[in-house]
Nucleic acid binder design. Structure first.
Length: 269
DNA sequence: GCGACAG
DNA sequence: ATCTTGTCGC
């Protein structure tokens, strides 16, 4: 019988993870490093990626690790990959990367082997970048440093760190977002702007929370995310989540048949 | 004991 | 994250 629940981490494991975050943090680049980022229309940007893990209902350990690459600015799917995996680390706020990043790195490596020409020029990651506890090193930074790719963190909920809270002031700022593209900065008690709340399109009242992962500044990160939004969730993440949920539900994919799943893994024409 | 809690 | 019905607005 397959394991259905992850083990809670030992204190020692947490300390090790914190040391690892602090060490990798030194490699984060919170500035634009690509030519296309400097252009107001992102001229030269052709491929935007999205990564995600979606979980199978009722099981803490089985997940579908997915990666998609979309064309830019058309936002059409060029590549999609979905791989069933067994997760061992539990979900703990602040340590999400240790649960998900290993499988996302593998997905990026598969892409590099299969279709190096489709390597995304920037990756949107479900979760936060520098908007994070302690070291300020969320999953988007972690994945960025390990892959070397520019990464942007996109969270659907506010991670309440450094004094940030869903208080009345925050709710008022949300009410003041009038239309798609409106933003307000997320300034922590430390005075530092950790990210931006973005009303990603006109119909959605609830913002998304954008933060720097790697090789981008916050301004171009927000601008890029907004340019990828047809709905509240930016298209690369929306597409990769759809892909992952299909993988998790696919009845042809029994416990015995993975890790291979034909018809889902591979290049889309 | 109470609140917080990305995915 | 995932479980789930109806409901409100355009």
């Amino acid at each position: 019988m397959a394991r259905r629940e992850t083990e809670p981490p030992e204190q020692e494991t947490l300390r090790r993870w914190e040391r690892e975050q602090a060490q990798l943090k030194a490699n984060v680049i919170e500035e634009d490093t690509e030519e296309w980022q400097k252009d107001s229309t992102f001229a030269g940007l052709e491929r935007v990626g999205g990564v995600d893990l979606s979980y199978v209902k009722g099981n803490d350990t089985v997940a579908c690790a997915s990666l998609v690459v979309l064309s830019y600015p058309e936002l059409e799917v060029l590549y999609e990959d979905c791989q069933m995996v067994t997760v061992s680390a539990p979900y703990l706020a602040g340590y999400l990367a240790f649960r998900e990043v290993p499988f996302l790195v593998e997905a990026a490596q598969r892409l590099q082997e299969r279709e190096p020409g489709l390597r995304p020029q920037v990756l949107l990651v479900d979760g936060n970048g520098v908007l994070h506890h302690r070291a300020g090193f969320g999953v988007a930074c972690h994945l960025g440093v390990l892959t070397g790719l520019p990464c942007i963190g996109v969270a659907k909920n506010l991670l309440q760190v450094d004094g940030l809270a869903k208080d009345e002031q925050h709710k008022g700022q949300i009410r003041d977002l009038q239309m798609g593209g409106d933003v307000f900065p997320l300034r922590g008690t430390s005075g530092r702007v950790l990210g931006m709340a973005l009303r990603s399109y006109n119909k959605s009242t609830k913002p998304i929370y954008v933060s720097v992962g790697h090789r981008t500044c916050l301004e171009s990160a927000v601008r890029l995310v907004q340019s990828c939004c047809r709905y509240r969730i930016p298209e690369p993440i929306r597409q990769v989540r759809r892909q992952g949920q299909l993988g998790g539900e696919d009845p042809s994919l029994s416990w015995e048949t993975w890790p291979v799943r034909e018809g889902v893994t591979g290049i889309c024409e």
